[in-house]
Design a protein around this nucleic acid. Structure first.
Lengths: 376, 376
DNA sequence: CTGTTAGCGCTTTCAG
DNA sequence: CTGAAAGCGCTAACAG
């Protein structure tokens, strides 16, 4: 049945044996009732045969299945989930897949989910200022009554998630979650900041600029930058915080510091920003790493190696796998009631999966020294 | 009502005036019926107020809306779409967002759709050989009875789409569609191949290797490579077709040709493959472009400019916008019946939107000469 | 093992 | 302008 069974494009009613005169609707309009009539059996049996809990004779099941994909029947998911009262889908809230970090994460999550037999459905969070009745992405996913929610966006503030955290298992992926009642699997931004700072310090740099976006613009970038600055400060380096908003922001300011001789290195919270620095430096005739050392963070850019970027490689795949694992655990757990307090665990479980304490997994990345950094 | 109205996390029943003793279920369990009871009005009215066709007094509407987002009501999409018999969502079938081409496309489509008020929901096509009952992505989307379908994957063969092409408006995005009954918006791969071939030819190259994946592996890459080869052939160049399957395939073989002095340039159907060549060349001490010129295609890699890649920039944004535009047109059109033949158009329409002829838009990219190519 | 009977939550005529 | 009633396509107890 793999290929070739779709020979006639037109309508072919009489094909099975005892077909009555029922006019067969076009594929997507076909219902289980149509199938049932077509086969002269009841809807319930069709349903059971197609997805049911075993209680059908093999003969019947086969007939049903044969008819189903002969007529091109596609079960109406909305109806089935509505009736069943649940959806098997896991919602994935995304944003900005242009950024390689999110693109990769998206892909890895998809792969990990598929490996575990989990169905992902994604929408992007378009935050138009409207306020009421919109909030698009999240609402849409919740409206679909997804079985679980993975938030892979820095943009959605915890406050918007909180109200639903009791109703549906959810995990924030890739962003440290300050609200500790919300589950999160994130990168070890502190560690990353420290590794990069140490790297520069060991190379002898003592006066360093740190490009720092605000927490509102990008929480992950912000926390990373803060970690760098903190470490540098505790090492006794002189730092120059360069605020940034847009992608190209702060680049010129940082280079001004270089030209003025106030810093010998520039730390960026992102490889994309590092690229900007590299571009601007080239344009101004400032040599890297001779005149200034530059660091980034991500390690996900294709060709990062050819460019020789000094960076930290984020453990995206690991994060994705862990996130999916955790989601599976949450799904298996008894779905913590919104009101009831503590639940007495049964002592019989060998590996008691407890979703009591919120998940807060933190994954370390790897320092990748490159050609954009050098001794002073 | 923007923020702060969610002070009490617990259950607060009495808040509105005439609330009866109805215990209010947790947000996602809340139904329109609950709302109706809570307000002492009928379900129908609630429905109309929330989304309805205007026929409600402003006073009532306001009360309903206020109550709705006070209680955190999230309409059950499955139910509403089932009842309404239609979905507003546009399904997006994706795959492999690691590849920057698809990542970008995904993003651009999302942006374009949002700009037009179109709701996108995406799933990835996981093609496990199963055959029956699976075919995941497409089935899932069809099962959701999406209003339209955008296929942004080279992987899904036309045969799988064909059976449904009459039932739901669909457009293939980013891949030339050989089946001419299926709508498609694609890149002008012929032009791109020609531009790159001409570029090399003008630089004096006469013996050129073309890395060529099979059509099954990647249809877009294949067609691009073929276009390059065709053009080179018609220019009278000597070509050496290097077959490739996986990403890193054919790279060594191509370089062997260089070492053997049989070619002075290598053409890759993708920037990612170009990077592989660059890496391998570096590893073998072959200089680019001194010893060999290399070209790619995409122009989407971050840092492509810094690397100096010679490539063609694909018009991804334009393609996304066009795709969404076309989808909007299809959605507006009377939904071509699956069986009936020709439809007599009414002469009264000022701008007759005709979906009769399948869409086959082709968008041109831009040649970007870089530092990976040089005169012989 | 199969058919019957109720709904899931929402939209939508059709009356009032 | 609002309420009552009839489903949308499917699942899930129950009976047979």
């Amino acid at each position: 049945m793999a290929a070739g069974s779709e020979s006639t494009t037109g309508a072919d009613a009489a094909d099975a044996a005892d077909a009555s005169e029922a006019s067969v609707p076009a594929r997507l309009r076909l219902t289980e009732t149509d199938l049932a009539r077509h086969l002269g059996i009841s809807r319930a049996t069709v349903s059971r045969a197609l997805y049911g809990s075993g209680r059908v004779s093999d003969a019947t099941r086969e007939r049903v299945i044969a008819a189903a994909d002969e007529l091109g029947f596609v079960p109406n998911m909305m109806a089935s989930e509505l009736a069943a009262g649940r959806s098997k889908l896991i919602g994935l809230l995304l944003r900005d897949s242009t950024n390689p970090v999110y693109g990769q994460l998206f892909d890895s999550l998809q792969t990990a989910a598929h490996a575990r037999g989990m169905e992902l459905v994604s929408v992007t969070a378009t935050h138009d200022g409207d306020g009421r009745a919109q909030m698009s992405g999240l609402r849409r996913l919740l409206g679909m009554r997804v079985a679980g929610l993975i938030i892979a966006t820095g943009d959605v503030p915890s406050e918007q998630l909180l109200p639903f955290s009791g109703d549906v298992p959810m995990i924030r992926a890739g962003r440290p979650e300050p609200h500790d009642t919300i589950n999160a699997v994130s990168y070890d931004e502190e560690l990353h900041g420290r590794m990069l700072a140490d790297h520069l310090f060991l190379l002898g740099h003592r006066r360093i600029a740190v490009v720092t976006p605000s927490a509102e613009v990008s929480y992950p970038e912000w926390s990373r930058a803060v970690a760098m600055a903190d470490r540098l400060a505790s090492l006794g380096a002189v730092l120059s915080i360069v605020p940034a908003v847009a992608q190209t922001d702060g680049v010129e300011a940082a280079l001004d510091e270089v030209v003025a001789g106030r810093v010998s290195a520039i730390m960026c919270p992102t490889d994309l920003r590092q690229l900007e620095v590299l571009r601007a430096a080239a344009a101004r005739g400032i040599r890297v790493p001779e005149d200034v050392s530059v660091t980034g963070c991500d390690g996900l850019l294709h060709g990062s190696d050819l460019l020789g970027l000094t960076t930290v490689r984020l453990p995206v795949e690991a994060l994705a796998v862990r996130t999916i694992e955790r989601m599976a655990e949450l799904l298996a757990a008894p779905a913590a009631g919104p009101a009831a307090g503590s639940v007495a665990g049964s002592v019989t479980g060998p590996a008691p999966i407890v979703s009591a304490a919120p998940i807060h997994d933190i994954l370390p990345g790897t320092l990748i020294p490159g050609a954009t950094t050098a001794p002073v």
